[in-house]
Amino acid sequence: MTTMTTATTTTVLEASGVTMRFGGLTAVRAVDLTVNTGEIVGLIGPNGAGKTTFFNCLTGLYVPTEGKVAYKGTVLPAKPHLVTTAGIARTFQNIRLFANMTVLENVLVGRHTRTKEGLWSALLRGPGFKKAEAASHARAMELLDFVGLAHKADHLSRNLPYGEQRKLEIARALASEPGLLLLDEPTAGMNPQETRAAEELVFAIRDQGIAVLVIEHDMRFIFNLCDRVAVLVQGEKLVEGTSDVVQADERVIAAYLGTPFEGAPGAAEVAEVEAAEAHQEGTTPDTAAPDTAPRAATPADTPDTAPAADPPPDTAPPHHEDGATPRATGPEGKAP
């Protein structure tokens, strides 16, 4: 996988025992997570696992019920703008650009924390103001160039195509000169080419010395990209490690696809399904065969790649033949 670019790694983000309760519902339960410099860390989990809630706890949108979040050793205050000032920038799962501002203005808003000019300096327009504005513009254009949107600087952000809106959101976040960038599903809604481009973009950001924590559902994206992956299930961190470790973990597979019943019922069902399939093949060979054949073949052919949503074939994890076979058929067996 990817190699570390910096020799000396220091901890950028340290979340310890973060718990978030909404009334009786515990959305995030005692999650520990560290991100080091030059690292890309992935956060995955089924829908509703609490990933975005955890993000919101990190960025101060929510005040965690318990636990603390530290950035480079200092505990973060629970105010979003102070978190950004400290050096954590984020993007949103559902794009939240300033729709009626131009692309350039969006990035300039991102510069807010790194510029000081207040109302008086804006009204008096001294030399310092002009210098700071010019510097902000230059930096913003640089960032737009970096994500490839410089030619659209004067467009309204609402008129950008979806993929470019995502890029703009990243540029806007980078404008606050973060040490850690939090990406909440950066490739949601993107086509494969755009996802590939987003991957390159994240690597390029990492190469600038910015640590990245990314939530994503696209497993190929996550496993290509991340040095470490943490899996969140029902608010709890299930496992954390390299892509290989995570892909191989039984609990992860179970979390995504569910576990079969223990013992006899599972076996009985497998038999039942097999019988049903055999019967189907026999009766309607023309129509059913192409459809059911691959399904029947699934457990045998690709026993362990199938469960983990969509991992690339070349990164197939070690074998778990005995456990995987019933597990893969389990959900199918219940379906008919």
Partner: peptide, 8 residues
């Protein structure tokens, strides 16, 4: 919300 997340 986005504005505060940008440090405003």
């Amino acid at each position: 919300t986005a504005a505060t997340a940008m440090g405003i």
